[in-house]
Amino acid sequence: MIKNEHISRYIGILANRLRREIDALASCGEYSGAEGKILHFILAHTDSEIFQKDLEEEFGMRPSSASALIKKMEQNGLITREPVPYDGRFKRIVPSEKALQNKENVLHGVQALESRLLDGISKEQQEQWLAITKKMIQNL
């Protein structure tokens, strides 16, 4: 630990600021910040099948949290769940027409936030930060 500096404190501050920024992106009232992050992932991967397990892994969510969020998004008309023909136990998550109409805004908003976040940070620093963060996640 660096003297008088607590890395976990700064990670918490960063997480809170990011959450506020993401919530502001979603302030149109169509969806929450959490739904916006999920929606961004789904819209960015429309060329592949997305399942609840994919969201759990991508966002480090518990199955119960992912299930509740998916249900809420379905109720809000942002996604539908469709059974896959090869296995009746699985339902893929598909963006609704409403979500597809907002695709450019959602994708652009997250990309703009990412650009602001990384402004002035070199590619090497970004790669180093990512490696360190992944190691911290493994440690926990």
Rank of each mutant, 00 (worst) to 15 (best):
V94D: 09
K53C: 03
R116S: 08
L14H: 02
A99C: 04
R81I: 04
S8H: 01
S115G: 00
N139I: 04
M136L: 11
S32N: 01
L25D: 11
A15G: 07
A15E: 14
A66G: 14
I11S: 05
I2M: 06
G60E: 00
H45L: 02
T133W: 00
K123V: 09
G12S: 15
E35M: 11
S122I: 00
N76A: 08
K134D: 10
S115K: 12
G12L: 15
G36F: 10
I79H: 15
E114L: 15
W129C: 14
R62F: 05
K71C: 03
E97Q: 12
A68I: 00
S32T: 15
A68R: 10
M61I: 05
A131M: 12
L18M: 10
E35A: 10
D54V: 02
E124Q: 14
L78G: 00
F41N: 09
G60M: 03
V106L: 06
L14A: 11
A112S: 03
I93T: 10
K37D: 01
G109N: 06
L113K: 09
Y10V: 12
Y31E: 00
R62P: 02
R92E: 02
D23S: 10
R92C: 11
K3D: 15
K72N: 07
A24S: 08
I11N: 05
G29M: 08
L78K: 01
E104M: 00
K72A: 13
W129V: 14
L14T: 09
T46P: 15
R116D: 02
A44Q: 09
Q75R: 04
I2C: 08
E74P: 01
D87M: 06
H40G: 01
H108C: 01
S8D: 01
K134H: 07
R17M: 10
Q128L: 11
K37Y: 04
R17H: 04
A34Y: 06
Q52G: 04
A24R: 10
A66I: 05
K53E: 02
I93K: 06
E49T: 11
A24F: 10
R9S: 13
S32G: 10
E35H: 13
G36M: 05
S64P: 01
L113Y: 13
K3F: 00
T46Q: 09
T46I: 02
K3M: 14
C28M: 00
K123D: 15
G88H: 15
H40S: 06
